[in-house]
Amino acid sequence: GATAVSEWTEYKTADGKTYYYNNRTEESTWEKPQELK
């Protein structure tokens, strides 16, 4: 299949934890999204 550009962006909180934000759905998660595995 075609490689889609991930909708997920990786961010870090002030205390250094990583989370992921989906630009399309406006969803955020602590877990690494399936698309990034």
Rank of each mutant, 00 (worst) to 15 (best):
G1D: 13
G1R: 00
G1N: 13
G1E: 14
G1P: 13
A2P: 14
A2N: 14
A2M: 12
A2S: 14
A2Y: 11
A2C: 09
A2Q: 14
A2W: 13
A2E: 14
T3Y: 05
T3N: 14
T3D: 13
T3M: 11
T3E: 13
T3V: 13
T3S: 13
A4E: 13
A4I: 14
A4Q: 14
A4V: 13
A4N: 13
A4L: 12
A4M: 14
A4W: 13
A4K: 05
A4D: 13
A4T: 13
A4S: 14
V5G: 12
V5R: 03
V5P: 12
V5A: 14
V5D: 12
V5M: 12
V5H: 11
V5W: 12
V5F: 12
V5N: 12
S6Y: 09
S6A: 11
S6T: 12
S6R: 08
S6F: 07
S6H: 11
S6D: 12
E7I: 08
E7R: 01
E7Y: 07
E7L: 06
E7T: 07
E7D: 12
E7H: 07
E7N: 07
E7F: 09
E7C: 04
E7S: 06
W8T: 00
W8E: 01
W8H: 00
W8A: 01
W8V: 02
W8I: 02
W8M: 00
W8F: 02
T9F: 10
T9H: 10
T9W: 09
T9N: 09
T9L: 09
T9V: 15
T9R: 10
T9G: 07
T9A: 10
T9I: 12
T9Y: 09
E10D: 03
E10W: 05
E10T: 08
E10H: 02
E10A: 10
E10V: 10
E10L: 05
E10R: 01
Y11A: 06
Y11M: 15
Y11I: 14
Y11H: 12
Y11G: 05
Y11V: 14
Y11T: 05
Y11Q: 10
Y11E: 07
Y11W: 07
Y11F: 12
K12W: 07
K12G: 03
K12I: 14
K12N: 06
K12S: 08
K12P: 03
K12Q: 12
K12L: 11
K12Y: 10
K12T: 14
K12M: 12
K12F: 09
K12R: 11
T13P: 01
T13H: 04
T13L: 05
T13M: 06
T13I: 02
T13C: 04
T13Y: 04
T13R: 03
T13E: 03
T13F: 04
T13N: 09
A14N: 09
A14T: 11
A14D: 10
A14E: 11
A14S: 11
A14K: 11
A14M: 09
A14L: 10
A14V: 10
A14Q: 11
D15K: 02
D15S: 09
D15G: 07
D15Q: 05
D15N: 08
D15W: 06
D15A: 06
D15H: 04
D15V: 01
D15C: 10
G16R: 00
G16F: 01
G16D: 04
G16T: 00
G16I: 00
G16L: 02
G16M: 01
G16P: 00
G16E: 03
G16Y: 00
K17Q: 12
K17M: 07
K17R: 13
K17A: 06
K17Y: 08
K17P: 01
K17T: 09
K17G: 05
K17I: 10
K17F: 07
K17N: 08
K17D: 09
K17W: 04
T18P: 06
T18N: 06
T18W: 04
T18S: 11
T18R: 03
T18Q: 04
T18M: 06
T18C: 05
T18Y: 10
T18H: 07
T18E: 06
Y19I: 08
Y19P: 02
Y19Q: 04
Y19V: 08
Y19A: 05
Y19D: 02
Y19G: 05
Y19K: 05
Y19M: 07
Y19R: 04
Y20E: 02
Y20L: 00
Y20F: 08
Y20W: 15
Y20D: 02
Y20G: 00
Y20P: 02
Y20Q: 01
Y20S: 00
Y21N: 03
Y21M: 05
Y21E: 05
Y21H: 08
Y21Q: 05
N22D: 02
N22K: 00
N22G: 00
N22E: 02
N22H: 03
N22A: 00
N22F: 01
N23Y: 11
N23F: 09
N23E: 14
N23T: 13
N23I: 12
N23H: 15
N23G: 08
N23V: 10
R24K: 14
R24E: 10
R24H: 11
R24G: 07
R24P: 03
R24L: 15
R24M: 13
R24N: 12
R24T: 13
R24A: 11
R24Q: 11
R24Y: 14
T25Q: 02
T25P: 01
T25W: 02
T25N: 03
T25D: 02
T25H: 02
T25G: 02
T25L: 04
T25V: 01
E27R: 04
E27A: 04
E27I: 07
E27V: 08
E27K: 06
E27F: 04
E27Q: 10
S28H: 13
S28N: 07
S28L: 15
S28R: 14
S28T: 15
S28P: 03
S28Y: 15
T29I: 09
T29A: 08
T29G: 03
T29R: 08
T29Y: 07
T29F: 07
T29E: 04
T29L: 08
T29P: 01
T29W: 05
T29H: 06
T29V: 13
W30S: 09
W30M: 09
W30E: 07
W30N: 08
W30H: 09
W30Q: 07
E31D: 10
E31F: 08
E31P: 02
E31Q: 08
E31G: 04
E31A: 05
E31N: 07
E31K: 06
E31I: 10
E31Y: 09
E31R: 04
K32D: 05
K32V: 08
K32S: 04
K32E: 09
K32P: 06
K32L: 10
K32F: 05
K32R: 10
P33E: 02
P33H: 02
P33I: 01
P33D: 03
P33M: 01
P33A: 01
P33Q: 02
P33Y: 02
P33V: 02
P33S: 02
Q34E: 15
Q34P: 14
Q34D: 15
Q34F: 11
Q34L: 13
Q34H: 12
Q34N: 14
Q34I: 12
E35F: 06
E35V: 07
E35Y: 05
E35L: 04
E35K: 04
L36W: 10
L36S: 06
L36T: 05
L36N: 07
L36V: 05
L36H: 09
L36R: 01
K37R: 11
K37H: 15
K37Q: 15
K37L: 15
K37T: 15
K37S: 15
K37Y: 15
K37N: 15
K37A: 14
